[in-house]
Nucleic acid binder design. Structure first.
Lengths: 109, 109
DNA sequence: CACAAACCCTAGAGAAACTAGGGAAGACAT
DNA sequence: ATGTCTTCCCTAGTTTCTCTAGGGTTTGTG
């Protein structure tokens, strides 16, 4: 019964941000998010793969098959120029939204 | 075409927080959210009413018919004890999630 | 009287994340 | 060599929210 889950709409931002640090395969993206968030955020594979497909379709990221650190076949994604722009937009939007929600919570009138 | 919208999952928190300041009717809740967030957050009625029903069913809030400031028939909602507890939980969860996402964005490793 | 504003409500669509599966291929221990 | 674990990819179907786009009633006002 409702564990703590991702906020809907933030996964794209997280993925874009991870990929800004360099190309990464799907499994690795999920691991990095988990790691960077100190175990708070956990992205299920059933969420991740559909998400990267959407993002690829939108032209934000590009895929290329390669070999992982562990010598496994893996699909590496990297940001496109459009993706970098999208990252900037979403980062700004995230800041704006959290600030707005913070204002409501703090009841700053 | 994607306007800025609510983060899915945050509406309950916003409503609970508004009601902590005192009983309020649906229309007024939406207005207050809009106002407190300096026009950033806008809750559609088609989102609001289903949300309060869900919350009522869960026992977080209670409704009572009354008359509004503008002399209109209005359904006033107020927090229950369970609702106050839920508000505390969701506030803490919100803080935790935004911090985690912030860490990923800031790439603080 | 007409019309706007303040209220309530609902069905259906859309989007995003999850559950719960499936599979292949390398690593490693026995 | 065999079996098991881990790493990696994938997808169908369900759930949960929010929105769109309507519907309606009552009061106040030009």
């Amino acid at each position: 019964m409702s564990k703590i889950e991702l906020l809907q709409g933030t996964l794209d931002l997280l993925i874009l941000r991870i990929l800004q640090a360099g190309p990464m395969h799907g499994f690795g993206i999920a691991q990095k998010i988990h790691l960077l968030s100190a175990d708070v955020l956990k992205v299920e594979e059933g969420s991740l793969y559909p998400a990267v497909y959407r993002m690829e379709r939108k032209g934000w990221i590009e895929a290329e098959w390669g070999v992982s650190e562990n010598n496994r076949r893996a699909k590496f994604y990297k940001l496109t120029r459009k993706g970098r722009k999208q990252l900037a937009t979403e980062t700004a939007n995230w800041a704006k939204l959290t600030e707005a929600i913070g204002q409501v919570i703090a009841q700053t009138e």
